[in-house]
Amino acid sequence: MTLAFFGGVYNNYLALEAAILDARRRGAERMFCLGDLGAFGPHPDRVFPLLIDNGVECIQGNYDNSIGKDLNDCQCGYTDPRDNYFAQISYEYTYESTSEPNRRWMRDLPGELRFEIDGVRFLLCHGSPRKTNEFLWESTTSTQFLEKLAREYDADVILGTHTGIHWVRQWRAESGELNDGSAGGQGVFVNVGVLGRPENDGRTNVWYTLLRLGGGSEFGSRNGEVGVSRVEVEFVPLEYDHNRLAREMAEVGLPEEFIETIQTGWWTTCLEILPGKERRKGRF
């Protein structure tokens, strides 16, 4: 079985459209979006028909919660004044350009989604299972922390987004047994990346995630030997018409800094939230 996971869309309806087509072509049977539908890009209302008409199952990000509840800011969790300045420009544009029915639709989205396939327990969240806007960066998230989340939130595979950069960690507890006596002690965390903007690597593509489950998987089995190897994670680089997006961003008067990111693949804003290791990979 193949599942597709889209991270923050950030109004990038062109990338979302391309991702849906690409995921279908690659055999995705179900598609999910992990929230933050708005921000950064142009024409927020163009995102919703794509999600709804294509049956993309969505959860609520901090952005969607803010817009749905008519809050004054995006709850992105930035700490730097410059980051917050640009976040506010983007938030106000998105809020004012999102129709009332779409705001209501976002307000009613669930904060998480759970399901089980072949005994594998999936938990879909936006930032982390415990906090919608928690930043789980690859370089600042210990494996024992992820294990604790999986244990406390009863999941084998946790998927999130929020940071804007994809990564995956698999673990297997040395003892194979958890403190509470249950079997397991293994799992996967996936940050699925985002469709909204490139990953600060000098490339203009964005990313989404495909997850494949082998038939008869023993993953998550309550007895005996279990293995995460049956869960295959593939990060998909996605090209889309970024020049058109940049043009439309300019037409609606979004900041030059945002447009530069779309055209160059380098982040120009929201930089202070990056850990050193991730920041070093960028230009600014």
Binding site: T79, W137, E272, I273, P275
Partner: peptide, 9 residues
């Protein structure tokens, strides 16, 4: 804590 932990609110 470091800025990368984000704001706690």
């Amino acid at each position: 804590t470091n800025p990368s932990a984000g704001a706690r609110e």
